[in-house]
Computed example of a mutant assay.
Amino acid sequence: MTDKHSQNDTSLNPFPLQNLDELIRPFIVPPKQQIIVPSERLISLTKDYDPAYKANHLKKSKAKSQLKEGIKALAEYQDILYAQKTHAVLIIFQAMDAAGKDSTIKHVMSGINPQGCQVHSFKAPSTEELNHDYLWRCSKALPERGRIGIFNRSYYEEILVTRVHPEILEQRPIPPSLIDKNIWERRFEEINNFEKQLVNNGTIILKFFLNVSKEEQRKRFLERINRPEKNWKFSVDDAKDRTFWDEYMAVYEDMFNHTSTDYAPWYIIPADRKWFTRLVVAGIIYTKLKELNLEYPSVSEEKRQELLQAKLILESE
């Protein structure tokens, strides 16, 4: 009797996309570093990241079939993760409305065993959640070892929405003395420390910003209005929030520049073409799972003998 194949075994399905590392590299936000000229590391959403970008060699029909095969590969690696129970994977999705977070989660994770995956969507905080610090509700939803946890929005909302709409922060039960000009710098540091602690204890953190253009968002909003089966997905408040588009882009850039670290970098994924978005996200998750070099747990010689004995009994029936 032999152990089930390890992650390095060639019998595992590979991700069906060549030069995967090359494809992914442009989407990584350079980690924050202590350098002499801070402006050298600053990124700009409008100048550095094109929401409509796609790799020139990729076609929509081909990408869809590649995603289908890639999902099979992801499922195999997730099975090893679940069996080993040494690491956890936390996947965070942030985006403007209609960028495709829900559909990306649905398509990319469609082949994953539900026992090893959990999704949490964070809406406006409840009274109980407001009575704790802003990291609390996400902390208690963190994935266990062996599992993949997906946050549809996250604690990052507390340095995004609350900056664009300061009245929200003013209504929170926080000591007024703490709502000062340094609050965002403190929160950047708190989040970085929080994520560092998770990584130091075996959690892999993948942070995706689905970068949709304002024009593409407008088209998707109109589709939600014009198609009755999608009416439930649209709120008038979504359209009102478009008037703050520039403010949101500014706070997102500041967030990326302060919280993209070498241990938990941000990935800014083009989101105007959903088929490309899904393929890239799946490729990044696959790459990180593969890098863990996990193997199915081995059994002791005593256990192996017990299994052989059980096999003989079963085969003799």
Rank of each mutant, 00 (worst) to 15 (best):
Ser39Glu: 12
Arg41Cys: 05
Leu23Ser: 07
His57Thr: 11
Phe27Glu: 11
Ala99Thr: 07
Ile35Phe: 05
Met109Cys: 14
Val29Leu: 04
Glu76Ile: 10
Asn56Met: 14
Ile71Leu: 06
Asn113His: 12
Leu23Gly: 00
Lys62Pro: 02
Ala63Cys: 08
Lys59Ser: 13
Tyr49Ser: 05
Thr104Pro: 09
Pro31Glu: 12
Ser65Asp: 02
Ala63Glu: 13
His57Pro: 00
Ile92Tyr: 15
Gln18Met: 08
Ala83Phe: 04
Leu58Ile: 14
Pro16Ile: 01
Lys4Val: 02
His87Ala: 13
Ile35His: 12
His87Met: 12
Asp48Gly: 04
Ile43His: 05
Asp102Thr: 11
Lys85Pro: 02
Ser65Lys: 15
Gln84Leu: 02
Phe93Lys: 02
Gln7Asp: 12
Leu45His: 03
Lys62Met: 13
Ile36Glu: 10
Gln34Pro: 00
Gly100Val: 03
Ile71Thr: 14
Lys64Cys: 03
Asn8Cys: 14
Ser44Glu: 07
Ser39Ile: 10
Lys106Gln: 15
Asp50Thr: 00
Asp9Met: 09
Ser110Arg: 08
Pro51Asp: 07
Ile112Met: 14
Tyr53Asp: 06
Leu67Trp: 10
Lys54Pro: 07
Gln33Cys: 06
Pro51Arg: 05
Val89Ile: 14
Asp21Leu: 02
Leu90Phe: 02
Phe15Met: 01
Ile92Met: 12
Tyr53Leu: 08
Tyr49Ile: 02
Ala63Phe: 04
Gln94Ala: 03
Asp79Leu: 09
Thr10Val: 04
Ala88Tyr: 14
Ile91Pro: 01
Ser11Val: 08
Lys101Leu: 06
Leu81Val: 03
Glu76Gln: 15
Asp48Leu: 01
Leu67Val: 11
Phe27Asp: 11
Asn8Phe: 05
Leu45Met: 09
Met96Ala: 13
Lys101Asp: 04
Lys60Thr: 11
Asn8Tyr: 08
Pro14Gln: 09
Lys68Trp: 14
Lys68Thr: 15
Ala75Met: 08
Tyr82Val: 00
Lys72Met: 07
Val108Ala: 13
Gln33Arg: 12
Leu81Glu: 11
Leu90Ala: 03
Phe15Leu: 03
Lys59Gln: 10
Arg25Trp: 03
Gln94Phe: 05
Glu22Pro: 03
Ile24Phe: 02
Val29Phe: 15
Phe15Glu: 00
Asn8Gln: 12
Leu23Arg: 12
Pro114Asn: 13
Ile35Leu: 05
Gln84Pro: 04
His57Lys: 13
Ala88Lys: 07
Tyr82His: 05
Pro51Glu: 12
Ala55Ile: 00
Gln66Phe: 06
Leu23Lys: 08
Ile80Asn: 14
Glu22Arg: 10
Val89Gly: 09
Ala83Glu: 08
Glu69Arg: 11
Asn113Trp: 09
Gln7Glu: 13
Ala73Val: 08
Tyr82Leu: 15
Ile43Tyr: 03
Pro26Gly: 01
Asp48Cys: 08
Leu45Val: 02
Lys62Asp: 15
Ala73Arg: 13
Ala73Ile: 02
Ser44Leu: 03
Lys54Gly: 04
Asn19Phe: 05
Lys54Asp: 09
Pro38Cys: 03
Leu45Asp: 07
